[in-house]
């Protein structure tokens, strides 16, 4: 057995880096095949013969958002699966504790009627909103041109589903405590028709129908999701004034996930902002989507009790987020 066997210090593709690669880089980079040939992202007939190759060429290779090597993108959290499940298991244990404790003290029975109105109209229908966010993240992860982006969007999708299920859970609890109300029955109708939710629904539907990957990322992660999350933050903050400490605490916890989405989104903007026209491309998309987002925030927040100034605060936070991005002058 004279075969000469030699080892290597790290993956050849990471060898040029000065720093020793982290576990995240070792297990998350270069694991995708589609970002190779402009006409042939997938190993079948090139565009236009194969519709999916045409789709990828149009929406990724020919996107106004350009970078010579998307594989170089890194999630600032360096989140990997085994850390994701560990972290979220801890968070879910905390949420279980919250739910258990509040159930124990019969929390829902003590909620005021005017607050229950708010929950019925503005909280429990949000499981549809979470579905839209789940679907939006699912589009991103399947279209993005690097595996590090797929991972970040994949964990984001998991988060959206997390809160979809938690809202469903709370919906059932509220129904049990207040069977005479519309909990668990009227959410779909309200999502489709209640005035306060139509801005968000419009924003979500139009975001979902956006397929250029750069614009889809901008529409979802820089505008629609942060806008939706800001309305959630306001709902949570109003909850405190109506002694719904459970919802307030749940929202606080949800915001941890939202912050993570913003961190990787910010990093992606920073990663590509210096290249070509990317700054103005992203800014252009933000400008295009912000009127819808502002409308969504205004209509939602207007339905909150004691809502004076609330929408302005939420919109200002969204602007502040945009100012924090490296496209900002």
């Amino acid at each position: 057995m004279a075969v000469n066997v030699q080892g290597m210090k790290t993956w050849s593709k990471l060898a040029k880096n000065k720093r020793r690669p982290s576990e995240y880089e070792i297990v998350t980079t270069n694991l995708q095949t589609r970002n190779r040939h402009r006409d042939q992202a997938y190993e079948l007939s090139p565009a236009p013969d194969l519709a999916m190759n045409e789709w990828y060429r149009k929406n990724v290779f020919d996107s106004p958002l350009q970078h010579e090597d998307w594989e170089e993108f890194r999630d600032p959290d360096q989140l990997i699966y085994r850390v994701y499940t560990r972290t979220q298991d801890v968070q879910e244990s905390y949420v279980d504790g919250l739910l258990d404790d509040h159930n124990e003290i019969d929390h829902d029975a003590g909620l005021k009627p005017e607050w229950l109105d708010v929950l019925e109209h503005l909280y429990t229908p949000r499981r549809y909103l979470q579905t839209a966010l789940q679907m939006g993240a699912a589009y991103l992860l399947q279209i993005v041109p690097a595996s590090t982006l797929t991972a970040a969007a994949g964990f984001q999708e998991g988060d959206e589903f997390r809160w979809l299920q938690r809202i469903a859970y709370r919906t059932r609890e509220l129904q049990t405590a207040h069977p005479e109300r519309g909990f668990a029955i009227k959410e779909r109708e309200r999502w489709e028709k209640h005035e306060a939710l139509q801005g968000l629904r419009e924003l979500m539907e139009l975001m979902l129908a956006t397929y250029d990957w750069g614009e889809a990322f901008t529409a979802l992660n820089l505008v629609a999701k942060p806008a939706a999350d800001e309305t959630m933050r306001e709902l949570g903050s109003t909850a405190r004034h109506y002694d719904d400490h459970l919802l307030a605490a749940l929202v606080d916890n949800q915001m941890r996930d939202c912050d993570r989405s913003r961190r990787w989104s910010t990093a992606l903007v920073e990663f590509c902002a210096g290249h070509g026209d990317n700054k103005s491309v992203i800014q252009g998309w933000i400008d295009k989507w912000m009127p819808l987002a502002e409308k969504a925030i205004i209509t939602y927040c207007a339905a909150l009790p004691e809502s004076e100034g609330v929408a302005d605060t939420a919109i200002e936070r969204l602007h502040a987020y945009h100012r924090s991005l490296s496209i900002s002058a």
């Binding site: 279980d96 739910l99 258990d100 159930n103 499981r127 549809y128 579905t131 979809l164 299920q165 469903a168 859970y169 919906t171 059932r172 609890e173 668990a184 959410e187 779909r188 999502w191 489709e192 629904r201 419009e202 539907e205 139009l206 979902l208 129908a209």
Partner: peptide, 21 residues
């Protein structure tokens, strides 16, 4: 805590009729 089967179905009643797209 609720059992999963008590709320699970709600989490998969999530289709709606779109109208903006």
């Amino acid at each position: 805590l609720l059992k999963m089967e008590e709320w699970y179905d709600l989490a998969r009643e999530t289709n709606w009729t779109p109208s903006y797209a």
